[in-house]
């Protein structure tokens, strides 16, 4: 059991009150597992992923805990978390293109970061160079400034740097979103390779793009309005989803060979509810075609079959 998240609640503090972007979410990621975290914008997937590494000053952990290899992560304690960051948990940010300090040579920046973590740069340099070559980068990128690299190269540098110390958990936040499709495939392939080579133990891939998850993820967690609605192996989520939201999400994906000029792509009408004052009961009820009276009570997350969890009254 690599990562075990239990009843995690993360809120943003605003002037109008706490916005619970992650509300009572539990799941676990096994050793060697790549778990996809999917959902539309604002469903809390990025907040969940980020809170495991870098709980922003605007966020607050209101409850629950996260265990990594049996040790509880001190999510709310910024300084104590520093012992885990980079070494145990690492984050490939959404903004890889601008993640590197523009006025420092890349090698210099990496050496300063590594040294600030009390690790000798000399000790990691051979491995750093090996991994750069592994992802198809010449080692002289270390002597360059970020502006001299293309977007895809920067992305790879960031991925090599974040995984340099073989973290137990890697959170990849929308890493493919800013890339073109062919580079997307390559980055997805890198995530799988990092796992296959044992560099990263467990991975959480956050994306709104389900097709990326089909390529890389072993299992998928679908979130809606801060709640976990379905968790299952990737194939099950794609072929036999049980939650109405997941079904509609899958149905909104374009299919090869279908002409959408004649066949309008479905989509899901309506908007997610405000998390400042979320509706009681099932949060998807307003947009759900199957909603009925029982949905006024919040459905529990039930394991329908081994490894397939759904939070919906209509699923069982």
């Amino acid at each position: 059991m690599s990562l075990d998240v239990q009843n995690l609640v993360v809120a943003y503090r605003t002037l109008r009150g706490d916005v619970r972007a992650v509300d009572d979410v539990s799941f676990s990621v096994a050793d060697g597992e790549i778990m996809g975290l999917a959902g539309e914008s604002g469903c809390g997937k990025s907040t969940l992923g980020n809170s495991l590494v870098r709980l922003d000053r605007t966020m607050r952990c209101l409850g629950g805990r996260a265990l990594l290899d049996g040790t509880e992560l001190p999510l709310s304690d910024w300084d104590a978390m520093d012992d885990f960051r980079f070494k145990k948990v690492s984050l490939v940010p959404q903004y890889s293109m601008s993640a590197l300090n523009p006025t420092r040579r890349i090698g210099k920046m990496i050496s300063e970061v590594v040294r600030s973590r009390k690790i000798r740069y000399k000790d990691v340099l051979p491995e750093l160079e090996r991994r750069l070559r592994l992802v198809g980068l010449p080692t002289d990128v270390l002597a360059k400034y970020p502006i001299e690299l293309s977007g895809g190269m920067k992305q790879r540098v960031v991925m090599v740097l974040t995984t340099l110390l073989d973290p137990s958990l890697l959170v990849a936040d929308e890493v493919t979103s800013a890339l073109d499709v062919s580079t997307q495939r390559a980055v997805g392939g890198m995530l799988v390779e990092l796992r296959d080579m044992g560099i990263v133990t467990s991975t959480i891939v956050i994306t709104h793009d389900l097709s990326v998850l089909v390529q890389v993820a072993d299992s998928v967690v679908v979130m809606y309005a801060g709640k976990l609605v379905e968790r299952a192996p990737t194939a099950t989520v794609v072929d036999a989803p049980r939650h109405p939201y997941t079904k509609l999400l899958i149905a909104s994906l374009p299919e090869v060979g279908v002409r959408y000029a004649e066949h309008v792509l479905a989509g899901i009408p309506g908007h997610p509810p405000s998390l400042l004052d979320p509706p009681k009961g099932c949060r998807f009820a307003d947009r759900c075609p199957l909603a009925s009276a029982e949905c006024a009570v919040e459905p529990p997350l039930v394991e329908l079959e081994s490894g397939h969890f759904v939070a919906c009254w209509k699923a069982s």
């Binding site: 870098r54 978390m81 980079f86 993640a99 974040t162």
Partner: peptide
């Protein structure tokens, strides 16, 4: 962004501020 990235790598505040 680069400051947030440094923080997520556990870089001490001193380094982030220096940059």
């Amino acid at each position: 962004d680069y400051a947030h990235f440094l923080e997520s790598l556990g870089a001490p505040r001193r380094l982030v501020r220096k940059y």
